[in-house]
Structures are given as C-alpha cells and as structure tokens.
C-alpha cells in the first residue's frame, strides 16, 4: 500500500459570500494510497465534501496543489478535468442522483457510453446484487436499491478511485450495511481506492485509515489495525 495515488499540498478553499470569507479548507496536506479504503470523518462544514470535490475534479482549490498519480490536477483546465473524471473517477452521492427518467440499466449506461474501458452495465448491476431489477425506474426502487444502482454506475467504468459522499446518509441501518458491503467488496475485489465521507463514526471501523476533519483541517489520522466487516457494524 505504499503507492501514493493522491497527494495534496497545502490546499485551501475559500468561499467568498460577499460579506464574509468562509474557509472550507485551510491548508490540507494529505496522501492517499492505492487500494486503500479511507473514511473521512468530521462534523458538518469541516471540509470533507470540499476535499472530495477537489480530489474528484469537480472543483478547484483556491490555493495549494493536488496530484493524481503523476498528474497535477491543480491547474487542469475544464476539459482536462472532464477527461480525468471520465477515465478515472467514480462518484457515489448521499441522494443517489439517479436520472429519474432512465431505468437502472440505462443509468449505468450513462457511464458505459462514455468511459474508455467499461464493464457491461448488466455486470455492474449484478455486482451490486441488482441483476433482477435492471429495468426498473428509480421511482420503483427502495432507497438502498437506488444507492446500489448509483454504486454500480460508479464502478461500471472500472475507476481507479471511488469517491463516496455520505453513501449511507439517507438510508436506514440495514440497507446502509448492504451498501457498505458492496463498497468493501468492490474495494477488495478490484483494488479500487475508495474514499468514504461520513458523519457516522461507526463506519470508520471498516476502513484501512480514518482521517478526522475539524474546521477545514485534518485533526487526526488513524490507521485501523483490525477492520470490521460491515455486517458487524451497528448504528
């Protein structure tokens, strides 16, 4: 796990609301390693999502530098960031963000249509246990199922990194556990570097490493000697 996949150097992110400047990130230095499952933990507004957005190429840092492997993302133009997201990154969001007018299969195809080396949509859905619900629309599925479609969509491109922002935030604990199991399975099976943001302190126990955030800074980094399987986690 010595290979570094992400490296950041003093990144800050300032939101200028006109009257006040809000520091969402205030100088973060961080390294993430290939194949590890990292949990970012911290209260609301501590900068977790902002960091995730910057790592995922959804947003630019105000200051500091970010590398993905040997590529510096910091000053990549919009076109470059789009290509980076298309080729390397899978996203999972708290509210699933499925396109309501597309079926599960078609939602995954959104990705397989544009990714360079995707797996078939059916295979991705089978991986998350939805092989039999492929032709259902989001409105016909439970929250857990919808989140699993979102994960299938994220992994279908065989991403090197999977960025998950509160993936269980909108789910009850039973369904949440199912989703976490899928994430761990993907991480182990494909060695996909996985970053999970959560409020839920219990989830940290399945991670290789846990990074704590407070006021836009990293307050602590902890490595788990023993990891729990999601089914052992209760909240």
């Amino acid at each position: 796990m010595a290979d570094v996949i992400f490296r950041t150097q003093g990144i800050t992110k300032v939101y200028d609301t006109g009257e006040v400047q809000v520091f969402a990130l205030a100088g973060v230095d961080l390294e993430l390693y290939k194949g590890e499952l990292t949990v970012l933990l911290g209260p609301s507004g501590s900068g977790k999502s902002t960091l995730l957005n910057i790592l995922g190429g959804l947003d630019h840092a105000t200051d500091g530098r970010v590398w993905f492997e040997d590529t510096e993302l910091t000053d990549l133009p919009d076109r470059g960031l789009t290509k980076y997201r298309r080729d390397h990154v899978g996203f999972v969001f708290q509210f699933y963000n499925l396109v309501p007018s597309l079926t599960a299969r078609e939602n995954v195809q959104l990705v397989t249509d544009v990714a360079p080396d995707p797996m078939p949509a059916e295979e991705a859905l089978a991986l998350v246990g939805l092989g039999k619900r492929m032709d259902h629309f989001p409105s016909e599925m439970s929250g857990g199922e919808q989140q699993r479609v979102a994960i299938a969509r994220a992994i279908a491109k065989r991403p090197q990194i999977l960025l998950c922002d509160e993936p269980t935030g909108a789910l009850d604990s039973t369904t949440g556990v199912q989703v976490l199991e899928v994430l761990r399975d993907i991480n182990e099976r494909f060695g996909t570097t996985t970053v999970v943001i959560t409020h839920n302190a219990e989830i940290q126990r399945m991670a290789h490493r846990v990074i704590f955030f407070q006021d836009g800074k990293i307050s602590e980094v902890r490595t788990n000697e023993t990891r729990l399987s999601p089914s052992e986690i209760v909240w």
Partner: peptide
C-alpha cells in the same frame, strides 16, 4: 441541476 452535476461528475463534457 443535480442531474447536470451528476453528468459532469461522470465525465460528460460541457459541450455534450
């Protein structure tokens, strides 16, 4: 809005 954000996150370009 959020679908647009999602499409971009997935890797669809501005032109697309």
């Amino acid at each position: 809005r959020s679908e647009i954000g999602l499409l971009k996150a997935i890797g669809y370009s501005n032109t697309e």
